[in-house]
Nucleic acid binder design. Structure first.
Length: 554
RNA sequence: GCGCCUGUAGCUCAACAGGAUAGAGCAACGGACUUCUAAUCCGUAGGUUGUGGGUUCGACUCCCGCCAGGCGCGCCA
């Protein structure tokens, strides 16, 4: 894989600093970034501002001093100029851009990869919805985020495992089983009511019908304990089946489906309790066993074992994270819905109570989605049985659009998702804008076929840019691996969305201004076709990271 | 009351771990298809970055106070 351009750059700048400012070179965090304004060249550094503090000289003066050395070190890569109050602006040599394009041609679908992650094992656990109902739109946002994040991390050189934690133990699942039994009885005409905290969603009626069809009504005459257990298992099995189906339909696949129940069966929950007791972080009060989470900044201590002797969800969660730790991950990332954010301090505390470094666990909170339809907000809550299933949204707008809308923003912010806008196949819709660029390129290649313009002129004919628009595209393309890297490190897949959107914009602008295939100018045409090919590769690779298709025609 | 998230153009959002004149799309207005997909492009207009202080060469960005909205504060999960 090719070296990241800014890293190459920074290495050279460091050499200069080392040679001329040896005392400072370690202290300074070189900031080199692509310029926002083309007038300022391709890359800029604020180095002189940082040095001026130490040397008590004006930044501009320092920049001027530094410039000859930098230009010498960057010979053949870029040349700099001093601008503004002390910025040093660099213009990349065309030859660097051109050779990078050739590398993209060679790397194809691998382009964008880097060794940022050094193969470190990292786990992304997401969705992990209680199997008490189908996935709704909010879960979709978690699913899109977790999945894209995993893809991005992998591209950046991490070894990634995607995991779903199945909450198949505890009181909620008991209630679920009970609710299903009630629904089944209701179908048979019995006058029974769903328990107060039970699940009232229509989906249980459906499942009840299935159960009756498959098992017959004899199921209801089984002995109490057996019957309760069976209804619980059936409910979980059916609902997990639905959830898996919904996720697959949404192009989300998991490497591991981890069962909460297994933590009890393996004795890990008991082990964790013993461990915490041994470490001296537990105490008894009011008949319950508590963990001193306040030692690590939690608001209050938390119950591990209830007065009635049963462990809380928190306890199995601790065992779960202990299990993750034992599996040798370098980091684990939990993606949680916004309603769980109050849970973060206690989980972080638990990690530390176990003696695990705090930064082992990263928790990302995904804020809610507000669905709009004709200006009417639609609310979601699994408990009340009022929600828009993910499946329904996907049926309406498609997987590509749904995924893109969920991914295009920082998940920590509230998302307004207007179904009507998303359905429009128009410029309101950024997904189509990006996909359209890809389809257009495909169509250019079809046109090439039709015109019989198929001769291969060879790399040596890639001589130089014919206009500014081509150069802009090339500049953007070579930055893709760095965007992937940044996206991975900051855990923000939406950077990929922004990048692709801008790249598509540059391509559309180029396309409208310049004829690509011109039989009278074969070398020029050939170069532009190469540029198209390379753009196509990057668009495709970027869309892959988002789990979105790159259509050949639209 | 406490905690977390959010506040940028009429609307939806950018601004890359403080950088140069705060940018896109939509909506409005005006242009570009006998030529590789007009789901596109080009242009005009639109701003006291919620508000008051502070930190510094420089603040949408960091710190403190206020205001507004969302969410959470169970021996539920």
């Amino acid at each position: 894989m090719s070296q990241l351009i800014t890293e190459l750059f920074k290495g050279k700048i460091e050499e200069v600093l080392k040679a001329h400012y040896p005392s400072l070179f370690k202290k300074i965090d070189i900031n080199l970034e692509p310029t926002r304004d083309k007038q300022h060249g391709d890359y800029a550094t604020n180095l002189a501002f940082l040095l001026s503090r130490e040397f008590k000289k004006s930044p501009r003066e320092i920049a001027k001093e530094l410039l000859p050395y930098l230009n010498q070190a960057l010979q053949g890569i870029a040349q700099g100029k001093v601008a503004g109050g002390g910025f040093i602006n660099f213009v990349l040599e065309d030859s660097v851009l051109l050779s990078s394009l050739k590398e993209i041609l060679k790397e194809k679908e691998r382009f964008g990869e880097s060794d940022t992650g050094k193969g470190e094992k990292i786990q992304v656990e997401f969705v992990s919805v209680n199997p008490t109902g189908p996935l709704h739109v909010g879960h979709g946002k978690c699913a899109a985020f977790g999945d894209a994040l995993a893809r991005v991390l992998k591209k950046a050189g991490f070894t990634v495992e995607k995991e779903y934690y199945i909450n198949n133990a505890g009181r909620q699942t008991d209630l679920l089983g009970l609710s299903l039994e009630v629904r089944t009885r209701q179908i048979l005409g019995e006058e029974v009511e769903i328990p107060e905290d039970g699940y009232r969603g229509e989906y249980l009626v459906e499942i009840a019908r299935e159960v009756l069809k498959e098992r017959g009504k004899d199921i209801l005459s089984l002995p109490d304990e057996e019957r309760t257990q069976l209804f619980k298992e059936l409910a979980i099995e059916k609902i997990m089946g639905q959830i898996k189906g919904d996720l697959e339909n949404f192009r989300v696949q998991f490497d591991v489906w981890f069962s909460e129940k297994s933590l009890f069966e393996s004795g890990e929950v008991d082990q964790i309790l013993t461990l915490l007791k041994e470490r001296g972080y537990t105490f008894e009060k009011e008949g319950a066993l508590w963990l001193k989470t306040t030692l690590w900044g939690d608001d209050k201590d938390r119950v591990l074992i209830r007065e009635n002797g049963s462990p809380t969800y928190f306890t199995s969660d601790i065992a779960y994270h202990w299990n993750k730790w034992k599996r040798g991950f370098f980091r684990v990332i939990d993606v949680w819905g916004a309603d769980h954010h109050g849970y973060i301090p206690r989980m972080k505390a638990a990690i530390q109570a176990l003696g695990i470094p705090e930064d082992f666990l990263e928790i990302f909170i995904v804020q809610f989605v507000t669905l709009l339809r004709a200006g009417q907000p639609e609310r979601m809550s699994t408990r009340q049985g009022e929600f828009i299933p993910l499946r329904q949204l996907v049926d309406e707008v498609g997987v590509d659009v749904a995924r893109y809308y969920f991914l295009m923003r920082d998940p920590a912010t509230h998302l307004e998702f207007d179904i009507e806008v998303a359905k429009k196949q128009s410029m309101d819709n950024p997904v189509y804008y990006i996909q359209y660029a890809h389809a257009r390129i495909c169509s250019v290649f079809q046109e090439r076929q039709r015109q019989g313009f198929t001769e291969y002129l060879g790399e040596e004919k890639i001589a130089g840019f014919y206009n500014q628009e081509e150069r802009e595209i090339a500049k953007k393309l070579i930055y893709f691996p760095e965007i992937v890297k940044r996206s991975a490190i900051s855990r923000q897949p939406y950077l990929i969305c922004n990048f692709l959107y801008n790249l598509a914009g540059d391509f559309h602008a180029f396309y409208n201004l310049h004829r690509i295939i011109d039989k009278d100018k074969p070398i020029e045409s050939y170069f532009r076709l190469v540029l198209c090919r390379v753009t196509q590769i990057v668009l495709k690779n970027g869309l892959d990271l988002l789990g979105i298709t790159a259509p050949d025609s639209m």
